[in-house]
Design a protein around this nucleic acid. Structure first.
Length: 946
RNA sequence: GGGCGGUUAACUCAGUGGUAGAGUGCCAUCCUUACAAGAUGGAAGUCAGAGGUUCGAAUCCUCUACCGCCCACCA
């Protein structure tokens, strides 16, 4: 009894299926890995999304790829463990919450550090897991029992421990240095957190008067005239003939803090580019990294610093500059120079400007106290790992950039002057540290009224520098306490060295003083990210999970965070554990919109993955992304690609429905090689064998895109279009093969389309509710079923069926016009083949009759088809259009002639015959023979068609 | 300034030495009892350009053009 069609809907509805299965998986704790398992481990650490925002296409792609790998390796018999988690996201998250406060008309200093942090934690509780929850809709097989957050234990503990270990090894130091300062975020950034943007600016040519003869100028080109106020010298190239006479002379600084004119020297330095501008460079060591280096080379240590941490000109610059924004100051400087007739000219100039990767504000190079990590000792192992193949990149082309980055690596600026993050575990003693502090007080506090009197300090709009002891003395104990509470932050220079402790010490180790305070800075959020592949398992504590699952197997990520994150994980993993944190890095591209533009909120071109899931299903979204995810290459996401993937899902759904309808009570046993009699059976299993091999290989080599395309074409072209069409004619239906093929398709495809395959698996096979596909196994090898002979024979049938279908169109016949075919084959085996499968050929070519001729007995009024190994005559009777038939034959004759010419050219080429492999030559020869035979046939037909 | 990647059908892209592929779109025909989210057939490409290596090049090498990305102390 066929299953009544009406009971199963004709189109697949993912909405009915997907949520149900994810719930079932979770209920059964299907994704929870066991460290006690004897199966080999396959572990992955999710790239933890920041707790800002919600799922976007990039996450969807990244996590789909991971889920495919996880599910594939689980089917392969591995103990799969994929750890979910989120990143506190330092500056990014703090910015989000600060923006909220701003809308309420408040700032973080209004709240104070503690209240602000409380607010961030409640944000985290509220929105932090949004993305993780959304990943469930995508089907991700994450082990929820192991969810981590970078700011909580065990990850937070790992951060402290890592810092302490670095400290003990002497790799940490605190120094006043030129760093990238974001005046908007109010923090230092590491070098890779600075992005470069091309900007249209002006290049100013400024006259620096000679001291001896103020009418004599040396002209310097600069884009930043506001920093002239902090110029300490002018540098020229030592071999620049134009300036030999100037070296060693004194110049008058064109603009001066407080208007007090002072002198600067002309120095010679190799660092100067003679080609640029006038070949003379103004040296501003307080606000430019190159100038800082040059100044050091010339022992210029007494720098002027004119731009404050808030991006405004500092007080001592005097009118009209003091207090103005640095860009406003640029215009003021331009005007002042013009007024003094020191501006020779200006020209439009395009150059790249460093901006903050979090807020886009132009970076200000500034001197400030920061914590740095010495990278020198960490680099070599990370390089070796990649050189020696213990760490592999997919695609390999990313290995070189990775190595180059490491080779040029400088020390890492770790400290951030924000509040949200891992507070640096360093403690200072109020008694015995002779320190210099920087306070940025709450403007409403009493402290700000006292500050101008502080000893030895200089003041900026941002705050006050001064010595710790000096401040206390100046303020008195009480006001000083208030100041400490109100202080936004402070930098401390420590002649005797502070203490690094996992917990706040009660008293000073040196003097037993109890006035202990912690370094106010937090660590770069990427510091905790670098520990992620081992902190998630509880490192530094050793645990069974850690033993079992570290190192992780594969890291999947986008190339945009290769340095920011991937390289640093390798550095840290190799350093702390002497073992790279993963063996493979699968690098995918960026998801772009239909026009190839990067998706961004500001462009308004973001496509919401959840919306795509609603419309097309998670499986369709996944399959579409996978299909396009050639390693390292960007992906365009378009409506079309979702539709195509959804149609594929529907195709598989329907072919399964078809098989289901054939099922009656008894379940057939699986086919075995010996008893496979039917050509179609042998053929489809042979094709399946090749497909399974290819798909397995592709999955294993991180070519998920390849696996997707391979399965797509097997399912659609081979199975649906040919095998099932053959099967429809057979009674009883070849259920054992149909089910075997489907059962294998489900398992091969499950990593990419988990919901649909799970659903169909349960519908078609007598498995219990809890026998999940993910717990089944990758199908055993089909190599026994490989059958090239069957594939060849099938090809003959396909060719003839195709030729007759084409003929109908060429002769403008209706697809249902009654036709018969008379076949004449040169080999008996072919005749037997067609005799055996006459039914299928008749049906698929829609013939009324199929005759096999023993000798040439061409019926009258017929069209002739030349096929491999024979000819097919199709009588057309009254519908025969002689002219059309002649044209058709002539056209194919022409095509053959062209091909023959090409083949002849190759065969008459001595060096081809001599040098090409014999197999290749034989291929050409046999093609030529076949063509010749067909050609003769056509010529005979042409002669007889009147 | 250095480096990397791309340029293949109208569109989006596969294809690393044997003579060009897919999906979508287009044209034509078809409600053939799994699927119109389908079936069948078709048109459509000097594989960016030039040179080289090779019996043979979309594929390897060199150069050029355009597009994109990364790195760099472009004052």
């Amino acid at each position: 009894m066929p299953f009544p069609v009406t009971e199963i809907p004709k189109t697949y509805d993912p909405k009915q299926v997907e949520p149900r299965w994810y719930a079932a998986w979770e209920r059964s704790r299907l994704f929870e890995a066991s460290e006690a398992s004897s199966r080999p481990p396959f572990s992955m650490a999710i790239p933890p999304p920041n707790i800002t925002g919600s799922l976007h296409m990039g996450h969807a792609l990244n996590n789909t790829l991971q889920d495919v790998l996880l599910r594939f390796y689980r089917l392969q018999g591995y103990e799969g463990c994929w750890v979910p988690g989120t990143d506190h996201g330092g500056i990014a998250t703090q910015n989000v919450v600060e923006k909220q406060l701003l809308n309420e008309g408040r700032s973080r200093t209004d709240l104070g550090r503690e209240a602000f942090l409380r607010r961030l934690w409640s944000w985290k509780e509220e929105c932090g897991d949004t993305i993780l929850h959304q990943l469930k809709r995508l089907g991700c097989a994450l082990d929820w029992s192991r969810k981590r957050f970078t700011l909580e234990d065990p990850c937070a503990q790992a951060v402290l421990e890592a810092f302490r270990l670095f400290w003990e090894q002497g790799l940490l130091y605190r120094e006043r240095r030129m760093v990238n300062w974001c005046v908007r975020c109010g923090t230092a950034l590491s070098d890779i957190e600075v992005e470069h943007e091309d900007r249209q600016d002006k290049l100013y040519y400024v006259r620096y008067p000679s001291r001896e003869n103020p009418g004599d100028f040396l002209v310097v080109a600069t884009t930043r005239p506001e920093t002239i106020l902090a110029d300490m010298a002018v540098a020229v190239h030592p071999e620049d003939a134009r300036y030999q006479g100037w070296i060693g002379r004194r110049l008058l600084r064109p603009l001066n803090p407080g208007g007090k004119v002072s002198e600067i020297a002309v120095v010679a330095d190799e660092g100067v580019d003679r080609e640029f501008g006038t070949g003379a460079l103004k040296v501003t060591p307080g606000h430019d990294p190159l100038d800082y280096e040059i100044a050091q080379r010339h022992n210029l240590y007494d720098f002027l610093e004119v731009i404050g941490l808030d991006g405004r000109m500092r007080e001592h610059t005097g009118p009209p500059f003091a207090g103005s924004d640095r860009f406003e100051a640029r215009r003021l400087a331009e005007a002042a120079l013009r007024e003094k007739d020191l501006l020779e000219k200006e020209e439009p100039y395009r150059h790249s400007v460093g901006v903050c990767y979090r807020c886009g504000e132009v970076i200000e190079p500034l001197l400030s106290y920061q914590w740095f990590l010495r990278m020198g000792a960490l680099i070599a192992p990370a390089i070796e790992a990649a050189r020696e193949g213990r760490l592999r990149f997919y695609p390999e082309s990313w290995r070189q950039p990775y190595l180059q980055w490491l080779e040029n690596l400088k020390d890492w600026c770790l400290s951030r002057q924000i509040w949200w993050g891992h507070r640096i575990p360093v403690y200072y003693c109020g008694n015995c540290h002779q320190d210099e502090l920087f306070f940025r007080p709450d403007p409403k506090s009493a402290w700000s009224r006292h500050s101008p009197t502080v000893v030895g300090s200089h003041r900026t709009p941002a705050g006050v520098y001064g010595s710790y002891r000096g401040m206390r003395e100046a303020l008195g104990a009480k006001a000083y306490q208030t100041a400490l509470q109100g202080a936004d932050r402070m930098w401390v220079r420590t002649p005797r060295g502070p203490m690094c402790k996992l917990e706040a010490p009660a008293r000073c180790e040196t003097c037993s003083g109890t006035e202990i305070f912690q370094d106010p800075d937090v660590l770069d959020t990427w510091f905790s990210s670098a520990l992620w592949p081992f902190s998630i398992w509880g490192w530094p504590k050793s645990s069974r999970a850690f033993q079992k699952f570290y190192p992780t197997h594969t890291l999947v990520t986008g190339y945009e965070i290769l340095y920011l994150w991937v390289a640093r994980m390798v550095l840290f993993g190799c350093y702390f554990l002497k073992r790279e944190p993963f063996a493979r890095v699968l690098i995918h591209g960026i998801v772009r919109d239909a026009k190839g533009k990067k998706m961004s909120k500001s462009l308004g071109n973001v496509v919401d993955p959840l919306e795509v899931i609603d419309r097309f299903g998670a499986d369709a979204l996944r399959f579409s992304l996978i299909q396009q995810a050639v390693p390292g290459r960007d992906i365009q996401c378009t409506e079309d690609s979702w539709v195509g993937a959804r149609n594929f899902a529907n195709k598989l759904y329907n072919v399964s429905r078809f098989v289901q309808m054939q099922l009656s009570g008894a379940r057939p046993v699986g086919p075995d090689r010996a008893s496979l009699a039917h050509l179609a059976d042998r053929w489809i299993l042979s094709r399946l064998c090749a497909t399974q091999l290819q798909v397995g290989r592709s999955y294993g080599e991180c070519r998920l895109d390849e696996a997707a395309r391979c399965l797509y074409s097997f399912v659609w072209d081979d199975f649906c279009d040919w095998y099932v069409e053959f099967a429809k004619l057979r009674t009883p239906a070849p259920l054992s093969v149909l089910l075997e093929v489907l059962s294998r398709i489900f398992r091969l495809l499950h990593p990419m389309m988990p919901f649909l395959t799970e659903d169909l698996w349960h519908r078609l096979f007598p498995v219990s509710e809890r026998d999940f596909l993910l717990n089944s196994a990758w199908p055993r090898s089909l190599e026994d079923f490989s059958d090239p002979e069957a594939e060849r024979r099938m090809q003959h049938l396909q060719e003839v069926i195709g030729a007759i279908r084409t003929l109908r169109h060429q002769m403008r016949l209706s697809p249902v016009a009654p036709l018969e075919a008379h076949c004449l084959f040169r080999e008996d085996s072919l005749a037997e083949l067609f005799a055996e499968h006459a039914g299928a050929v008749k049906r698929l070519a829609r013939l009324q009759a199929l005759y096999l001729l023993r000798e040439e007995k061409k019926p009258p009024h017929c069209a002739t088809l030349l096929v491999s190994g024979g000819e097919i005559f199709v009588p057309l009777g009254g519908q025969m259009d002689v002219g059309r038939e002649r044209a058709r034959l002539e056209e194919s004759l022409q095509a053959m002639d062209q091909e023959v010419v090409r083949l002849d050219a190759r065969l008459s080429n001595r060096s081809f015959l001599d040098k090409a492999p014999a197999r290749e030559v034989e291929k050409v020869r046999s093609r030529k023979r076949e063509l010749e035979t067909q050609r003769q046939g056509i010529l005979r037909r042409l002669a007889s068609v009147q």
